[in-house]
């Protein structure tokens, strides 16, 4: 049985301005080694809930547990060291004058030793192919590279949980492949990845579990195959399944299983 990493109990969050009830009693458990995608329309509560996982938001009611510990008395820094968060807009995280400095800065905030910082940086530079731009000014980089850099800057301090907010937005094919390698690496190391995404193709191909949210509540929580099969719930949550899944649904009356990729589709219809 995999270890529980994050658990929420009746989590309610009401934003103070405008009294928006963003979360309405969410119960969710995430386990070690999972690649969980949280999907839903804008305003469904996806970003609100993941911001509770590293303390950026605090519950109005209910509890959040990180590795079994109540987060009520933990600071953002304490939680962030175990639960890294990569923001959607890379420009929001970049402020150093070289790529190397940018990679080292978070490790310094978390009081890593010089040696640890250098070792971790070198590993990440190798993995993310950043050697050629190590002395470049981060703000002069193109969007994809900046995004890769912000992911790298979080991986440097080796969080056990990695939260990615819209990671594929603006990424080219090289960037997407790099991201997939990161997910695979985290998964192989037994770590957990949580993705917020509108990119259903990417979600379908890379997730082990999908949580669908709407109106501040969990509507469904299952494997990608199960989630994209239930047309009614998808409609309620205003989510379009991957294009290949939709195509399969139009072509067949039998809806036992959903097709999640082009290769599966070809295999099914080649018969």
């Amino acid at each position: 049985m995999a270890r529980e990493v994050i658990r929420t109990e009746n989590l309610v969050h009401v934003y103070p301005n405008g009294n928006v009830r963003a979360l309405r009693g969410v119960n969710m458990t995430i386990y070690e080694g999972e690649i969980v995608s949280i999907i839903g329309q804008n305003g469904s509560g996806k970003t609100t809930i993941v911001r509770h996982f590293n303390g950026l938001l605090r519950p109005t009611e209910g509890k959040v547990y990180l590795f079994g510990e109540d987060t009520a008395n933990k600071t953002v820094a304490q939680m962030s060291q175990r639960c890294g968060y990569v923001f959607q807009n890379p420009n929001h995280q970049i402020f150093c004058t070289t790529v190397r400095e940018e990679l080292e800065i978070a490790a310094k905030y978390f009081n890593f030793t010089e040696e640890e910082t250098r070792k971790n940086c070198d590993e990440v530079i190798e993995m993310m192919n950043l050697k050629d731009i190590i002395d470049a000014h981060p703000m002069t980089l193109d969007y994809t590279t900046k995004k890769v850099l912000t992911i790298a800057s979080v991986l440097v301090f080796k969080p056990e949980v990695l939260i990615l907010d819209e990671p594929t937005g603006g990424l080219d094919e090289v960037g997407r492949r790099m991201l997939t390698n990161v997910l695979k690496m985290m998964h192989d190391n037994g770590h957990t990845v949580i993705i917020i995404s509108h990119d259903m193709d990417y979600v379908a191909e890379n997730s082990t579990r999908v949580i669908m949210m709407a109106q501040g509540q969990v509507q469904d929580d299952a494997t990608p195959r199960e989630i994209f099969k239930d047309q009614e719930k998808l409609k309620f949550s205003q989510i379009d399944p991957p294009q290949i899944t939709n195509l399969d649904f139009y072509l067949t009356d039998r809806k036992e299983d959903s097709i999640l990729s082009v290769s599966e589709f070809v295999r099914k219809y080649e018969k």
């Binding site: 402020f95 150093c96 004058t97 000014h137 703000m139 002069t140």
Partner: peptide, 8 residues
């Protein structure tokens, strides 16, 4: 200013 690239 010192943290911005030269062209900015």
């Amino acid at each position: 200013l010192s943290k911005l690239p030269e062209n900015m």
